[in-house]
Design a protein around this nucleic acid. Sequence first.
DNA 1: ACCTGAACACCGTTCAAGT
DNA 2: ACCTGAACACCGTTCAAGT
Lengths: 219, 219
Amino acid sequence: MPTSRRERPAKPALTRAGIIATAVEVLRAEGLEKVTMRRLAQELDTGAASLYVYVRNTAELHAAVLDELLGEVDLTVAGDWRARVTGILESYTAVLLRYPSLARSALVSWPTGEHFLTVVESLLAALDDGLVPAGQAAWGVDLLLLHATATAVEHGTRRESLDRDDEWEALSTAVQGVSPERFPHLASLRTEMLSGAGGGRMTWGFDVLINGIVHTSVP
Amino acid sequence: MPTSRRERPAKPALTRAGIIATAVEVLRAEGLEKVTMRRLAQELDTGAASLYVYVRNTAELHAAVLDELLGEVDLTVAGDWRARVTGILESYTAVLLRYPSLARSALVSWPTGEHFLTVVESLLAALDDGLVPAGQAAWGVDLLLLHATATAVEHGTRRESLDRDDEWEALSTAVQGVSPERFPHLASLRTEMLSGAGGGRMTWGFDVLINGIVHTSVP
DNA sequence: ACCTGAACACCGTTCAAGT
DNA sequence: ACCTGAACACCGTTCAAGT
């Protein structure tokens, strides 16, 4: 008969939801690089092999974590249809920018979770309001989300590790020091190429896509 | 005095160029996952630590390999400026599609090598022919190459590993089986969302971007 | 069915010691 | 300056054995 005064907190039963919740915690605290099977197992006081009952592999785990975070995307943007499309995409990008390594995995294995589908639905609704033809809207949403994700990967990683500054400098000096004989256009557009690193360039990118989608019919 | 009949092929001196050449070989034969410091060292008959004299880290190595391969991009496309832009981008995408894992690394650490700069120069020249304003051309090239790279990552990875078929099926059933009450737009656009998996969709994407760039002035 | 420990087959990077 | 072996601190995944 166990005398159970002052027991250590009972080891909670392993569940898929519990594993994903722990993964989100580790992600927020230490980044995706630490969201490994071994580390999660340690956190859950078990062995890595046990997790494979609930999760197919690391990629599937990361996809589940991503969908969880996509619940934070703000879908209630005010304004006309264009402002709504841009606003949703900016919110989506902002979430991914907080976890650039997750953005990377989103690009590799396209998400299919509830929260992701909700984002897609909201974008389709806004495009419908804008009277964008169905075919263009369907393909366009794909383009918009691909661009938002790629932007997050590109900018996010830059911030994540410290040698991104080195890299910006490498790019900058590569463009600055380009030979005007061999790369005349590039040399004369140096300034423009490197300008507008901030949000202005991101907004311009979304505008380009929206204008293009509106003006380009599907084959 | 060494009697040197029948020597084993002399171990070649370690150079940066030699390391990168070996990396390209391994990449072509077995994919980027095998292009590791340890594996390359083994191939070059030395220890992994020796490579760090010539290469800062794995990321820098992969960037160098990528630029090497970008020498294969076809820049001599015939036709008007739009055809040239699309053609160069399609060739660029095709190269990355052969090595999707390299495309992934291109997105993370933007290339700055000679071959990459040549691609940029060619695109700028074509846009200039099309009388695209300088500011739009400069930012536009970035957008076009980001899209091409992201497309390669997205499609390429699908082919690389076998469980990409599972994934397409997952996406397909997720979209097919979506609840018409909660996701009305998505449900009614099911067919369009999943259509045009081939090259038509990629070409449409480039057209959207070109049209958008032409029609959207920079702030 | 689920859980576990141990094993297999790897990684990147650093460092002291040699040449 | 360059090269090396060994070490540190990790990975994902599988599998036989247990409960």
